[in-house]
Measured scan of single mutants.
Amino acid sequence: MAAGGDHGSPDSYRSPLASRYASPEMCFVFSDRYKFRTWRQLWLWLAEAEQTLGLPITDEQIQEMKSNLENIDFKMAAEEEKRLRHDVMAHVHTFGHCCPKAAGIIHLGATSCYVGDNTDLIILRNALDLLLPKLARVISRLADFAKERASLPTLGFTHFQPAQLTTVGKRCCLWIQDLCMDLQNLKRVRDDLRFRGVKGTTGTQASFLQLFEGDDHKVEQLDKMVTEKAGFKRAFIITGQTYTRKVDIEVLSVLASLGASVHKICTDIRLLANLKEMEEPFEKQQIGSSAMPYKRNPMRSERCCSLARHLMTLVMDPLQTASVQWFERTLDDSANRRICLAEAFLTADTILNTLQNISEGLVVYPKVIERRIRQELPFMATENIIMAMVKAGGSRQDCHEKIRVLSQQAASVVKQEGGDNDLIERIQVDAYFSPIHSQLDHLLDPSSFTGRASQQVQRFLEEEVYPLLKPYESVMKVKAELCL
């Protein structure tokens, strides 16, 4: 049975990233139509530049190519590739079939990587351009969430054990800070992308030097003109047959890092959902379990974690691919890159769409948070109580021993009897502590235990987050809708 299948058929496997999760716009960027249309555009740009620099290419040939950029006979191309065992030459023939007058000058002087690699770089750039505003929107939604809850005390956790208090907004800023680093890295790697350009079979530009009869300047002009037509500021000066596969490492490393950030955020949300302090959106008709109707599973956060793990592992592909590119190139890269580049971007696209949807509907339960604080705060307040007693004339050592005994009794009630923490009640009825009984409410005010959390939130948002989001103001209103 021949390899390949009808990918629109229910009898043929289709990647869930495309069929179930990723956005239509990201799927289109990695589609065959987008790819092969870009090949034709690159052939047109090459012909236009070659004509401008004096090669015998007519206006009629150029116009014929322009008129057929979208006229792609995919069936013919597939048949040609089956016959020739070469995808680029299959599309040269297919393009030439609908451009008979231009057929002889299509791909003039070029090698397969002229269309293959340059198209990949265009796709990487455009895919990054799709991700950047999506990530900015996630940051914006979380920034709104953090600002609104900047002063809401909550129990902090280290080692997932109760620690000092923080605020809900401050905790959210930990998430935002990681995503801001990801946004900066995505922008950097996007701006650092260079075009492969017009380089020939081993990167020496020998074929173009021959076409222009040894004119170095025209060869350099050709490279520059096509690079500018493709919208790049610069091209690699040095290439082998391909652009260095280190570029793929750079791009997928940034995406993998984004995956790590999203995994951490969504894990926190899942843990908070278990504590009943916070939940992701839950639709009115949504079913959490087929057997347990009360369940409210954090399905979206779980999906993000599941896909983020996949995204983090994909960076190993370009690392290994770059390491086995012998001399000017081997074909070890080809099949692998067809999979890992598309999957990385479709996965990143999915987790950003999902995280935006989550961040637009996060639900906080202040009463649950308050109750958990009441359970733990008495123990945390013991040092403040000791200091207040010393100020009232008591002995630190005597007070410490009193607190120690009462704390152990209260802990026994919590752990052995399943009761509430009654340390404060014990202190309130103990005559030894009568000098500070009137101060206990103040000493137990949760806001006095959150330090500068709310001020940190305000400063972080104003100095770091809002300036970073400013270039994306025009796209901030787009909502994230999930079908599944």
Rank of each mutant, 00 (worst) to 15 (best):
S412N: 14
R234W: 08
S253K: 04
D11V: 11
Q177V: 12
P378S: 05
K233T: 08
G169L: 01
Q241A: 00
N421G: 05
E383A: 01
L255D: 02
Q428A: 15
Q205E: 02
W175Y: 07
S12A: 11
G203T: 03
D268M: 05
L331F: 00
R309Y: 03
S447R: 12
I351C: 11
T204W: 01
L440C: 09
G231C: 08
K477I: 15
C27E: 11
L275V: 10
G54W: 03
A453W: 02
G361R: 15
E283H: 13
L484H: 15
H442T: 14
L121S: 08
P435Q: 12
T119Q: 14
F327L: 09
L341H: 13
L461S: 03
S454F: 13
K224D: 14
Q177G: 13
E360A: 15
R338M: 03
T313F: 08
S31P: 00
M65I: 11
M278P: 01
L469T: 15
Y34G: 10
A453D: 04
E328T: 00
A78Q: 15
T58P: 06
E481D: 14
Y13M: 15
H442D: 14
R452E: 07
D192T: 13
S9I: 15
R194E: 03
H86W: 00
P378A: 03
L440E: 02
D441M: 07
T350V: 14
Q210V: 11
L193E: 08
P162I: 05
S306W: 01
P446L: 03
S448F: 10
N384G: 05
I249R: 01
D192V: 08
S434C: 09
L362A: 09
W175E: 05
M389N: 10
A2M: 13
F145H: 06
C399P: 04
T450V: 11
D59T: 12
K147N: 14
D191G: 06
F145Y: 09
K367E: 07
I57T: 04
A230C: 05
N357E: 06
V226R: 01
E343Y: 07
A344G: 13
C27W: 10
P24Q: 09
D117Y: 00
A256L: 02
A230P: 00
H263L: 04
H217A: 10
V475T: 13
E79G: 12
Y294K: 01
I358S: 11
V254E: 08
L55S: 04
V251C: 09
K470H: 13
K415L: 07
P293Y: 03
S454V: 11
L132S: 14
F160Q: 00
M389E: 06
G418P: 03
S140V: 13
S9N: 15
T202N: 13
K82P: 14
L186Q: 07
F212L: 12
P10V: 15
E401A: 15
I62M: 09
T350I: 14
A388R: 04
L468K: 15
C180I: 14
D117T: 00
L128Y: 15
D398S: 11
G394V: 07
H7K: 14
C172L: 06
T242M: 07
I373N: 06
R337S: 01
V315T: 13
L124R: 02
V368C: 05
T158L: 03
L183K: 05
Y472L: 14
W43L: 07
A102G: 08
E463N: 15
Q439G: 10
A103D: 13
R459G: 11
G5P: 06
A453R: 03
E473R: 15
L468W: 10
E463W: 12
I237V: 08
P153T: 06
G5R: 11
N421V: 10
S289H: 01
L461E: 01
G8A: 15
R338Y: 02
Q428V: 08
F345I: 09
A431R: 14
Y21N: 04
V115I: 14
E50F: 06
T158V: 01
T38A: 08
Q221L: 14
A3T: 08
E328L: 02
R404E: 02
L468V: 14
R234Q: 09
I403Y: 05
D87Y: 02
G240T: 11
R404N: 09
G231L: 06
R459N: 15
C304L: 14
A322H: 10
M278W: 09
P467F: 07
V363K: 05
L42R: 02
S12D: 11
P133F: 13
R85D: 00
E283T: 15
F236N: 06
T330K: 02
N185L: 11
R194N: 06
A348N: 05
L155E: 01
C340E: 02
R404I: 03
D182P: 05
T202Q: 13
L352G: 07
Q164K: 00
F212R: 03
A348G: 12
K66F: 07
K470R: 13
N421M: 09
A392F: 06
M76Y: 08
D191S: 07
T354G: 15
M26N: 02
L142R: 02
H93M: 09
L42E: 04
M89I: 04
I139H: 02
I358Y: 04
G54N: 11
Q221R: 12
N353V: 08
G240A: 12
L193R: 03
V92S: 08
G169F: 01
E376F: 06
G418T: 02
